[in-house]
């Protein structure tokens, strides 16, 4: 009997190890997530953006964020270099001179939360301070829950959540797709302010179709482009730019509710090439394989208690 018990235990230990070892990343993934039923998002078209940064200003106003001076000696106007605790939305420029939207020239990109379909930040957060709304898919933050561990920052593949390093009572900040305006039936402030329609708010399904429509446009011909909200009637006529044939955010890491179109390769705009399966799905899959949802640990604990108790009793 004694020997058998011991073998059982060794078996348990060994199989736990093996189970962990057996899982090659390809096997361990869990399924991808679908678009929430009323998902809304933003389509940002770099070829339409003129770099006026009106959206940056609108974002700060809508979210009560102070101006930021990158060069403190010249505190003339708000000029953040990148996202920060005070800047939830930033327009960045790639290249300086030459023709717009060409690899040798320059191009703009707008950075803020992507509102991922399978958000790493939400999965990472131990306190459910970041949650994805099951209806419209907006990823919001609740400071009353947050413990400030910053795992969301480590986990976000796009480096979006920012932390108030200089506050004794710091918060995480990020774009929440102007959830407070959406709740009142409005749209995101950045899209409402955009003069060219480069930032376009709307239901993600429609934005995806719109993106596809643009990819099919003939270079240099005039087309109608909706402004601010894809459901609005306001349109402007623009010449179609030379699009890179890819909608960034449609598939990256399981997809996101913010979509990008651009005239230069996305990698040049600081948007990395990413696999279609999210790291979240992978990590979840591996956790599940090892733990089978707490069943394995309980079985092992039971085994351990049984065996140690017997041994301790024998000693007495």
């Amino acid at each position: 009997m004694k020997i058998r018990r011991r073998d059982f235990l060794k078996g348990v230990a060994a199989s736990t190890l093996l189970l962990a070892a057996e899982q090659t990343p390809a096997q361990a993934k869990r399924a991808r997530k679908d678009l929430p039923p009323n998902a809304v998002g933003i389509l940002y078209d770099s070829t339409l953006c003129v770099g006026c940064k009106v959206c940056e200003h609108a974002c700060k106003q809508a979210n009560n964020k102070p101006v930021e001076h990158t060069n403190p000696k010249e505190p003339m106007w708000d000029n953040p270099q990148d996202l920060s605790a005070n800047t939830l939305n930033v327009i960045k420029r790639y290249g300086v001179e030459g023709q717009k939207d060409t690899v040798d020239g320059f191009a703009f990109i707008k950075r803020h939360c992507m509102h991922c379909l399978d958000p790493a930040c939400v999965s990472a957060c131990p306190a459910s301070a970041l949650v994805k709304n099951p209806e419209n898919g907006v990823v919001t933050y609740n400071k009353k829950a947050c413990i400030g561990c910053r795992y969301c920052q480590v986990a976000c593949p796009y480096n979006i959540p920012k932390f108030e390093w200089d506050s004794p009572f710091p918060e995480i900040t990020k774009c929440q797709l102007c959830a407070h305006l959406l709740a009142k039936g409005g749209i995101s402030a950045c899209c409402a302010a955009c003069p060219t329609g480069a930032s376009l708010f709307g239901p993600v399904e429609k934005l995806r179709l719109e993106a596809k429509r643009r990819l099919g446009m003939k270079l240099g011909e005039y087309y109608d482009f909706p402004v601010a909200n894809i459901d609005s009637t306001e349109v402007q006529q623009h010449r179609a730019g030379g699009y890179v044939q890819h909608v960034y955010g449609e598939r990256e890491l399981g997809g996101s509710q913010v979509l990008y179109l651009a005239g230069v390769p996305f990698a040049n705009l600081g948007l990395p090439d990413l696999p279609e399966d999210s790291y979240v799905a992978l990590a979840d899959g591996i956790q599940y394989a090892i733990y089978k949802g707490m069943v394995y640990p309980l079985v092992v604990l039971g085994g351990l208690i049984y065996i140690i108790r017997n041994r301790e009793e024998k000693k007495e």
Partner: peptide, 17 residues
């Protein structure tokens, strides 16, 4: 952790993730 005063949050069943 930044918000240490509410560290216990992660153990509140309705907040635990």
């Amino acid at each position: 952790i930044g918000r240490y005063w509410q560290a216990y949050n992660i153990f509140l069943p309705w907040l635990s993730n």
